[in-house]
Amino acid sequence: MEYVNIFVKSVFVENMVFAFFLGMCSFLAVSKNVKTAFGLGVAVTFVLVMTLPINYLLENFLLKKGALGWLSDGFADLDLSFLSFIIFIAVIASFTQLVEMVVEKFSPALYASLGIFLPLIAVNCAILGGSLFMQERNYADLGEATVFALGSGIGWLLAIVGIAAIHEKIKYSHVPKSLQGLGITFIIAGLMGIAFMCFMGIKL
């Protein structure tokens, strides 16, 4: 039950895009058509689900205060959490680089459709944000952290595909000249954020 709760919460209530503005940059850059938006969304979800559990393990067995206790008693009160930024980003960056290389080698077709996004993903705030939220919220076990990663990824995918779809439609409407392009995209995102707020307070 806890898993379902975390999942719903991370998809709707604490949506990465609308509640925390994470991943906005790539979000605005590619939300022009639904297909690329979907591709990027899948890639982000995939990287989140793979890196967040790794970071969870690192956090709990290496970085957190007392986390090195399994090594020997002498290490029990060591606190390495100040290193967490650099370790998390190193995991994410090397993971995306690895995935890029593997995909390029074994599936050129997939690489052609997804590969261009992979370098972008290393600097996608939603991914690092996921790991930092995981650190702040102290999830109880690996399962919860993974579910949270999956939920955030899907929430991000939903948001970006939604905006891309609206963006495709808006070409046919009359937007004031100076507001065209970026301006209207921001306002749409804001309105969608308000719509998403109706999920607030949901608990399963």
Binding site: S178, G183, F186, A189, L191
Partner: peptide, 18 residues
């Protein structure tokens, strides 16, 4: 609330472009 930021930025971009 968070969504208002997006709307404010949207308006600032509008003014700036104009």
């Amino acid at each position: 609330l968070p969504p208002m930021v997006l709307i404010i930025i949207g308006l600032i971009i509008w003014i700036h472009r104009a």
